[in-house]
Write a protein that binds this DNA or RNA. Structure first.
Lengths: 338, 338
DNA sequence: CTCAAAAAGGAAAACGTTTTCCTTAGTAGC
DNA sequence: GCTACTAAGGAAAACGTTTTCCTTTTTGAG
């Protein structure tokens, strides 16, 4: 911490130092400054470049976003539309995305759509008005403006949940394969009374996890009867787990192996079991996401581990890529010893 | 879901509909359109206003942010600089803030400073370049540019952690009072072997909680000896709790009452206790924040409840207010029965 | 009826960039 | 000594707003 008095070194910039100021200081035109800033080749001698660079440093110049955006017809803003920011896995993705975007020179605008098509539309329109140069949908929901954006060929990246209108860039894990792996592990572990609790299948991620789990069981010749499955469209996954395990247990006793399509569902399950004073350790519970807090708050939970910290870079890569590729990241299956 | 064909109602706008288009359609000048949009009084007849409004609706016009920002010298972007977005309580504040900002017509830019002064400076400069009209600091750290912003009188709101340079708008709870309440409750509960585990006191929030707790005990004539206190600057609060309870127990046995300055610290404590197979229910543990997930994942934890969902509106109010007022929100003390 | 003030609204400047034209001076190939 | 071509760089337009002037018309007070 240096004393407030001796800050006469280069703290002059104060507020808005424009390209014109830099040009004047370097003794060149604003066009040249702009070209140096954007490293346009063959438009300035090395000497000029150095002079401009020096002026930029001395004045602490940094291009005003609005000017550039207005001229180019697009800003450096990337909008991230999350369906529910209170969900820890969303927050993890948002955090990783922010870091990756920032180091790629973008600025993240974060919006919470609460899984509401109307609100999503509002945000999409607003971001268009802000000249956002990219849209990241963390759990997209079908909506009119989204369809519009898709068909207009805007720069969209769908994360975890696929484009409800098909196609488009996608970043996520292989949910179906993960579901199947869970099935295999539970069966090999010797569980004979399996159950499944899942959230809304309007999410392609959830739907794939469920389908993969069922397919995995089918491949092993294991049957999953209907009263061993609970699904709900409720947004609060904790609630789903709590209610789901109650229902399942009520109509056929405690299972000995359980797949929950999210960690939160598993937390809800555990809560009910503890309230019932059930023999919790007799049940193998597998969640999905594997929150970094799990080793601390849920050491009893196995989980498909989604590499959220790697999502950021993947999303930036997807945004930058020209073709509509899907980026499938590798998941893991974390088994926690009792 | 309506069929893709019959969308000829008013889906024409496609991409960029500018103020000029609206003006043309309404048969007025762009100046008039602008004035109607910003409801400048005495500049348009009711009839004109209606005509413009109709044109706006029909074309789906919405002012381009960059144009307005450039002209006015400030955008509608509000930057939220969070010290650690993976902390659930930060995420909760961010979510509430986003909603409140949005409904007040602002757009939230979320940045994760990782509690790093250099990164915070980078963000502050970048946001200045983006003409951000407000800065919300969720856990500010002392840094050169921040000092600059403070003395330049920029629109700053400090949340939870106070301005390291003094003054400024502040939103938070009365941490000292809350700490004292915890002390009182623990003593009244009959605990005689108290302990305290806290994070970095560089955060004014933590410092106040600790000071309040100590003052509360002192007022009751209870002494808190040094080997019953553990503090650490480590960022990971889970780790602090885990290590803290180990140290404290090692140098004086298990406490029967414990105050942790964050929920996460308490989670870490619980983990260690369970690993040691300690009689966990013999200890009254009080956390701070009271995450909405606590009833589910930590029903054993008492906690000072911070009304994070109310932070959003308070922050917007603070941003809008002319004078540098502090907004102190009411906290609670949630006691969970065993 | 006169005059001032208010209402209504248009033309154009300004904001800070990027980029399209230009112009000039070298330079390589013949 | 030409002719092309490239390097180097400036002037000015353009992006979409808001706002300052300015003009014309209407209103109200005397």
């Amino acid at each position: 911490m240096n004393k407030p008095d001796e800050h006469a070194d280069q703290e002059a910039p104060q507020h808005t130092v424009s390209i014109a100021a830099v040009a004047k200081r370097a003794g060149v035109s604003i066009a040249t400054v702009s070209r140096v800033m954007n490293s346009v080749s063959n438009k300035a001698s090395q000497e000029t470049i150095d002079r401009v660079r020096r002026a930029v440093l001395e004045l602490g110049y940094r291009p005003v976003g609005a000017g550039r955006a207005l001229r180019q017809g697009k800003s450096r803003l990337v909008a991230v539309l999350a369906s529910n920011m209170l969900n820890p896995s969303m927050a993890a993705i948002a955090a990783a995305t922010e870091t990756a975007l920032r180091s790629a020179g973008y600025v993240m605008v974060l919006c919470d759509t609460h899984d509401d098509p109307k609100l999503q539309d509002e945000y999409l329109l607003e971001m268009r008005a802000q000249y956002a140069c990219g849209l990241v949908l963390l759990g997209a929901v079908a909506s009119d403006v989204l369809r519009d954006c898709v068909s207009a060929g805007e720069s969209l990246v769908f994360v975890n949940r696929r484009n409800p209108y098909g196609g488009g860039r996608f970043v996520g894990v292989n949910n179906a394969a993960a579901g199947a792996e869970v099935a295999t592990w539970l069966v090999q572990k010797g569980c004979s009374n399996l159950a499944l609790i899942h959230g809304s299948v309007a999410s392609s991620a959830t739907a794939d996890r469920v389908a993969g789990f069922r397919a995995g069981l089918a491949a092993l010749g294991v049957e999953l009867v209907n009263n061993r499955v609970f699904g709900s469209n409720v947004l609060d996954h904790l609630q789903i787990g709590y209610e789901g395990i109650a229902r399942i247990t009520g109509s056929g006793g405690l299972p000995d192996g359980l797949f929950c399509t999210s960690d939160l569902i598993a937390y809800g399950v555990r809560r009910w079991l503890e309230e019932q004073r059930a023999e919790v350790n007799a049940i193998e519970i597998v969640g999905f996401d594997d929150s970094p807090m799990n080793p601390w708050i849920a050491p009893w939970l196995h989980a498909v581990q989604v590499p959220y910290s790697k999502y950021g870079n993947a999303i930036v890569r997807a945004l930058a890529s020209k073709d509509e590729q899907s980026i499938i990241l590798e998941h893991g299956l974390v088994i926690r010893p009792r």
